[in-house]
Structures are given as C-alpha cells and as structure tokens.
Amino acid sequence: MWSIVHKMGSPPWFYRFANRAIAWLLPIVLLALVVGSIWGLLIAPPDYRQGNSYRIIFIHVPAAVVALAGYYVMATAGLMSLVWKIKMADTAMRALAPVGAALTFIALVTGSIWGKPTWGAWWVWDARITSMLILFFLYLGVMALSEAFDNKAAAAKACAVLSLVGTVNIPIIYKSVDWWYSLHQPASIKFTGESAIDTSMLYPLLLMILAFYGLFALSVLLRMRTELLLTYRQSAWLNAEVS
C-alpha cells in the first residue's frame, strides 16, 4: 500500500502512469459517453409525467454526482499534500478544481434548461440547484486562490486548507439549504421524489454516471500531465521520456 503511495508521489513514475492511463481511458470514456447518450436519448422510454424533457437527467445527474464527489477528492488530495507533502498531490489539487468547476457548470446549466419545460422558468431556487450553485462558488474560490499566489507550493497548500474547510462545511451547507427550502416552500412541488426509477431508465443512467467518473479521471490526468510537462521541462528524466 505504502509503496504505491511512494510511487504515486514520484513525478517520473506518475508521468508514465498518466500516459498509459490516458491511452486506455480516452477511448473507453468516449465510447461510454456516446453509448450512454444514445441509450438515454433514443432508446429509453419517456417519463410518464415529464415526457421527453427528462432525458436531460442522463447528463444532469451524473455531472452533479461527480462534481460533488470531486470536491471530496480534491480535499483528500489537499490532505495528502499537507500531511505527507506529496508533490503529485499538489499537482492534483491544481488540476482538480477546474474540472470540478466545469462539471458543476454542466450540472447547473442542464438543470436550468431542464427547469424551463418542467417548472416554466429558467431558474428556480430549488434546494438542490441552490446547493449546486454554492458548490460552484466553492470551486471558483479554490481556483481564484490558486491563481492569486505567485509561489506554486504556497498556492497548493493554501488551496488544500481552503478545500478542507469547504469539506467540513459542505454537509452543513447542504442541510441548511434543505431546511431553508422547506421553510419557504412547504413541499408543494417535488419532482425528485421517492418514485422508484424503472430499470429501462436506470441502466443508461448508471452507465452515464460511470462514464462521467471516467471523464473526471481522464481530464484530471490530462491536466496533471500538462502541469508536469511545464514544471519539469528542465529536468533530464522528462527529456529522456519525451524523445
């Protein structure tokens, strides 16, 4: 277990690992995204209440799920960078925030588009959408903080502290937004109720969630590889690796 952590911390090993992982992940992720989208768009039956507009669920929910999980991954990388001073964890932190922000953005915009035919408005201050918006702000905060420092090591450590503080706060924020919503809107419209989802819709949804996790891993690895190419462009191992 520890030997893997040590290897992960070594930039040359990680560069090779990233190259191999990207070569595998790229075709798999693209294929899964295409298959999942076709399944969700063309094959799955429409929802009996929402008709065809519900098909947005196959990108909205996976993006939201992975965006939230991504914050925890970022905080874990932050903890590793603070406690064990692993260099690759610093690089991971910088790569994770923009990817998480992009996925949160997808979740927000698709949610808003979905809202138009469902609620009749582009934006509704629903508990889930509001929490998602705050998650987006948390990601933007980490990105802004990492840009503000000239010193990269200090930037990574500052982002690590901020993302850990955010992690402690996220459950409180989600719970408080839930209460806020029920306080102002006593359970009148609820589309995300407990109604069991049919397997004909569940399987494409699960496939898309997996595809989005893969997409998350892929784009983080791509960004980390770019970051390594920039940071170690003077060093011998990278030059040997490239040529």
């Binding site: 905060g141 503000a148 408080s176």
Partner: peptide, 27 residues
C-alpha cells in the same frame, strides 16, 4: 489568514468567505 500576504486580497476574501457563510445566513 489565507489572503493576508496577497496584494489584491480584498475581493478574493469575499469570494472565499461568501459560500461558507450560507448556513449562518439561513439560520
């Protein structure tokens, strides 16, 4: 504490704090 060393810390400070203050405002 995170922005004290930065020259343009003012806006950044609000950007970092506001999402965290949501539960306080709600309660």
């Amino acid at each position: 504490s995170l922005t004290v060393a930065l020259r343009r810390g003012g806006v950044l400070l609000s950007l970092l704090s506001i999402p965290l203050t949501v539960p306080v405002l709600i309660f």
